[in-house]
Design a protein around this nucleic acid. Sequence first.
DNA 1: TGTGGCGTTGCAACCGGTTGCAAATTTGCG
DNA 2: CGCAAATTTGCAACCGGTTGCAACGCCACA
Lengths: 354, 354
Amino acid sequence: MVRCSNEPRLSWRRTPFETDVPITLKDVAEKAGVSTSAVSRTFTEGASVSTKTRRKVEKAASELGYSPNVLARSLTTRRTQLIGLVANNFENPVFLEVFDRFTRLLQARGLRPLIVNLSEETEPDKSVTMLRQYSVDGVIVVSSTLPEDFVDAFRVAQIPVVHAVGRPTDTPRVDVIGVANDDCGRLAAETLIARGYRRITFLGGPEAATSTEGRARGFLETANAAEGVTARLRYCASYSYAGGYNGMRAELEGDVAEAYFCGDDIISIGAMSALAEAGKRVPDDVGLIGVNDMEMARWSVIDLTTIRQPLPEIIEASVSRIIEIVRDPDQTPTSRTFHCELVERGTLRPLPDV
Amino acid sequence: MVRCSNEPRLSWRRTPFETDVPITLKDVAEKAGVSTSAVSRTFTEGASVSTKTRRKVEKAASELGYSPNVLARSLTTRRTQLIGLVANNFENPVFLEVFDRFTRLLQARGLRPLIVNLSEETEPDKSVTMLRQYSVDGVIVVSSTLPEDFVDAFRVAQIPVVHAVGRPTDTPRVDVIGVANDDCGRLAAETLIARGYRRITFLGGPEAATSTEGRARGFLETANAAEGVTARLRYCASYSYAGGYNGMRAELEGDVAEAYFCGDDIISIGAMSALAEAGKRVPDDVGLIGVNDMEMARWSVIDLTTIRQPLPEIIEASVSRIIEIVRDPDQTPTSRTFHCELVERGTLRPLPDV
DNA sequence: TGTGGCGTTGCAACCGGTTGCAAATTTGCG
DNA sequence: CGCAAATTTGCAACCGGTTGCAACGCCACA
């Protein structure tokens, strides 16, 4: 390999980016007539450099279009500024909003998201290896359907990890940011009952998802406590349109309930489609209420009544938290719980007249 | 900093991931009783190692749970296996499919996607710096609305770049993979005219988007060549639900056309919502045809007639191409053009009886 | 047994940075 | 102006790997 950074470059114009070989510390040091340490320190917060050399270095650096190589730096600082963003559901449109927010927030903090798509991965260790090879500073697992072993694997591997949209508990094994799922189920049941629905069903996500269980519990608790209300459960194969669609198709073969609490907005939309195909009108024949309040819920073709999960807040909290843990890894994991609220739109019948 | 990899570890069980400090080459070398070079070569394809040492090394490595540090390696090999994935539209749900496919494909090839969200970035150089600091091997720009300066900036910075979903031309400045946008516009116009629509309008994306111009051109060409057909144009502010919604709202204030060719499925859906709110039925009162054939287009609540852009193929081609360019950067940029096809669903009136 | 050839091995330099330490310089103060 | 303290600087080692090169061991063949 030929390094020729010392020889004059051939380009007729000397703009920062018209160089053939990446500029290194050494190039800048030479040009500025100082040691490489001086250059390094100029680019290191809080290091000791006189204003004079700093100016010389900055001049040389900007003339050469130099910017430090984060990866080389990471070798000694042990910080890559890389954050693994692990997800396993690319079917639910809400995740586009989620990625949008995560990527912006991370970028704004000088971090870079390294996406890991676990859609068809079953080996926790493999995903750990994938991220360890890149020495990510930390990992944000954003999923409520990923088996616990996955997030556990990061803990065991000593990689700082935050589980976003996970299930908060009193003594979590890793940091968790999520919502009170049972409250969410309770709120749904209360809302449906208040609307006068009597035969109601929870059309949940995958039975194994951490979110499903809590929502089912809260829903059933409240429903069973109410006079004359019968509540049932049905799980969908995934948090996706197809999941909701097929779930509702199955319902349509039997006794259709008066209203459904869907485990996610996307399930509601799938259900809505199946109902439409079967000639049932929403909300006239069947009521629907979802969870999330994703962007699409407010589209007027959808116009979905739903329970808002404060995703922006959850995401912000996750990013802040991972930064904290990276800075000081010896923290006891904590749960942070956000609360849900009802968002009224057009898929439930109005409150009965008093 | 204290390195203590030589001292016995304290954990009661010796599983690969229950170590406190990341395992390095040296650890493995020591344990296997060989030099670090031997270890390195064991993990380097095509290097010269005897079967005996290879076995010793592999044993030690797996006992220690060692996997090489890609970033450290990249210093000498000049390959990080990192691919920048640059996008600026996180509002169009089709991008979730796009990300899903890209991330899977890249992972399958041993590459890692580094997402860069350019939603609110206006400085091309900044995005270049962001990616150069991480020495990405290459960049895939996936957008038809990003100003050309951005992808140009990568070219100038000598970073291998592929522009996916871009506008193919005869002499592209960077590699481009996309569709024949004017064919796409032509196909739309032909389809609408065949259905007997006479007053038709192109409800395009942002006027500055590379895709919009070609589609408009093909659309107008064909429409103007047809007897008794009048065609108009209206641009939407963005490829998003809101873009389409507001675009159609503006239309509704004037002369509503008989049918609309929407520059993207998501624009169709926005338009559809605005129409529904105005009490217009699709396709009875107004016809709609989109572009993309995104997942949602087949949802029965949407059921959108559309022109399919072969995204899976475009994405596969983009990944293959970036790998080629990374391997051999001195290639003349080429365009690769895919063709569109009509997908019939429920938002156009049927063919008139013959 | 001697010798040539080949596959394997380790040394040491290097990739692009950072950082502890001691030397060199500047500053403050009497 | 002299001297000690504070600040700045460069040297050199190191981060975790790779790789050119020369030395090594082994085997075949004469």
